[in-house]
Design a protein around this nucleic acid. Structure first.
Lengths: 213, 213
DNA sequence: ACCTGAACACCGTTCAAGT
DNA sequence: ACCTGAACACCGTTCAAGT
């Protein structure tokens, strides 16, 4: 079921899926209520691939690993990043795998000493970064042809006087030697995690020695 | 042209658009090469609403405002956040308004003293946050019925022992009194901006007095 | 329990032809 | 210059009917 769309891209249609299964399109409706339900199903399968690390890691390492694993999953299955928005989103269609992931991230934050409020916001910041990064990555990767050639051609069409910084930015994409080792995803992730760590230590200090400062 | 889909949701179809314009569907192809081109067009219109602040603001305030304005635009026109992934993305279809926005953000960062490499990563971190947050927001807002009721019902269906932190998280959504004033979007944005500011001042200090430390 | 034929109400797009 | 009729190759989905 899942294999069907991994090969192809988002040309996953009820009729083609049925054909692949050697069956008539309407037969699928015996097993599944609607296409949305089917999509929720395969998204759940993908989310099952997210790695939840062992308990002995500190909060930052653990969350960093989960975020990277989630991002990797979404890179492997780009449709899983864009579909949730298109498909009918309802709480009931959220996969157990996703719930498990959420619970784990939230738990790490809470147990590291973050307040419920901070944890709430931290979770959403991480989630937005993962989804946003993946969508950008998927869009960039989906450009047909050789992206570098296209980017270069595009850059040449821009007036240098009006877009000097944008041209520099495109150059960074075309020539990876101009960037350091960290990926765009990990860089942004660390910006978020570092801010969280600062907020945490500031709070822990206050709590530990309330009179000393 | 734009008004057509603002009212309705993503039921924007060539045939319905034609009907609204009192014309036959095929007539549209005289004015536009494909549906993708039309979609790129209306996305550009939305992006034109992004506010670019005056030059006299410091980099952090300026970027913060642009990010919030961009996010507001995407909240007003949710389709503009999800479409770019679905529609055929090609450099040529990026609107002048978007280029102007990019140039402005990149310029603020560079002129604030960030290296080309740092600016590159900072831009993508901000962009991912804006897109990711908006998609989450749109998905959450699109849930039919009263989201709070649905969330509460959903929460009750979860076993408390296995998902204690997730339940707490849902509670935070249902009861806004449990959160502080800042929106999820602004909180995450400030995590990123604060990290950037730290990296910047660390570098400026190093540059200003290389021997003193 | 599992599948199908026939049908409905949609899509985007092409192309030769009309005014 | 601008619009249209007719047609093509698709969609998701329902429902009564078959084995």
């Amino acid at each position: 079921m899942d294999l069907a769309d991994k090969g192809g891209i988002e040309a996953l249609t009820m009729r083609k899926l049925a054909e692949r299964l050697g069956v008539e399109p309407m037969s699928l409706y015996y097993h599944v209520a609607s296409k949305d339900e089917l999509l929720s199903g395969i998204i759940g399968l993908a989310e099952g691939e997210i790695e939840i690390p062992a308990d002995d890691l500190d909060w930052k390492t653990a969350i960093r690993r989960m975020a990277i694993s989630f991002h990797d999953v979404l890179k492997r299955h780009p449709w899983a990043a864009s579909l949730p928005q298109a498909a009918g989103v309802s709480p009931a269609s959220v996969s157990p795998a996703r719930l498990r992931y959420m619970e784990s991230v939230l738990g790490r934050l809470r147990e590291a000493g973050f307040s419920a409020n901070m944890t709430h916001h931290a979770y959403h910041a991480l989630d937005s970064h993962i989804v946003g990064s993946t969508l950008w990555h998927a869009g960039y990767a989906s450009i047909k042809g050789f992206p570098k050639d296209i980017a270069t051609t595009f850059a040449r069409s821009l007036p240098v006087e009006t877009y000097p910084y944008l041209l520099e930015h495109i150059e960074q994409h075309v020539n990876p030697a101009l960037r350091d080792g960290k990926s765009e995803f990990e860089f942004g992730l660390d910006l978020i995690l570092d801010s969280l760590e600062r907020l945490r230590t500031a709070k822990v200090k206050r709590t530990r020695s309330p009179r000393k400062l």
